[in-house]
Amino acid sequence: MSQLSESIRGLGASGPLRRMPRANVERIATVVVLGWAMGFMLWQGAGFTITLTTIFAIWAILAVSLNLVVGFTGLLSVGHIGFFGIGAYTMAILASDASYDQLRTESIPTPDWPFFAALPICIALAGLVALGVGIVFNRFRDDIFVLVSFGFAIIAFSFFLNLRELTRGAFGIHEIPRPAFGSWALDGEVEFLVFALICLALVVLICWLIVTSSFGRVLTAIREDEEAIAVFGYRVTHFKLAVWVLSAMMAGLAGALLASWTSFIDPNSFILLESMLLIAIVILGGLATIWGSLLGAMAFVLLEEGMRFLPFLPPEFVGQARQVVLGVLLVVLMLFRPQGLVGRYRL
């Protein structure tokens, strides 16, 4: 691919981990992560398990959808968090409680829509923005693509922060409702978890259908050599644009879920750093594998939440510590197992 990735690939050319048969590493990684999750949940009890799994479901939707673009198509996008934010803010603006608006220091339009009316708009808007952005981004490849997607994440963040008439800027938006079927609102944590897991299952199913279709095979060919595949009659830009939009729509769904679950969002949830963490999850789990992204998301959530319980770590450092741990993990993985825990492909 690019010079940058070539030089990354050159590092640690022959590690014992890299030579280990794929099936073994995959099995060990799966057992370790799942065992860790089980143990942790048993130790902390039901309430914690529910919270942990809900966070996992949201991050897993993000990771699986990003893997479509990064792992299968070879477009290293660090802008995915922008679409996540668009989904979340659309839900917040459309669905937040109108009566609460009188208490706000800064007023925003509040159509007061129910969750399920707003959800399709969240997904569609993320897709629409992706379409516009993607038409421009289609001109770029490799390292330059990374840079422009970086730019998108920053622009999206500054929109969330500065478009105060819509987003209330740094104040954030409160009172975002939970999904409701008629009078039955998914207020309970268990109900919401089930709903989030159903969404995740749908996303995984759609991604699986995509990557096992003829379309999916074309994506991998684009990743390997987009000039060569064009000669065989494929309009590469259309395929790249399509997967980019589909992936963004899934991120939009994840954003809507987050907004509804936490009932409050502000721009800090959508900073560039979150995008980097997301890339780390995808690479850690393995490129071009759906199972890897699920595993990566689980490992990440366990790390993030697990660090709260470290006795020697003061609570105020937990946030920073997870970044350090994830950063170190990513470097170690790039050195010894660049294809990720269960992946086959390298950047």
Partner: peptide, 30 residues
């Protein structure tokens, strides 16, 4: 020699046989 390096020889052939149109290709299996 420009092959699709990180996919199988089988898929290297397959990819030139399948549907070229975007939407139908999403619903096409081997």
């Amino acid at each position: 020699v420009r092959l699709f390096e990180q996919i199988s020889a089988w898929d290297n052939i397959m990819v030139v046989l399948t549907e070229r149109r975007l939407i139908p290709s999403l619903f096409e299996r081997v």
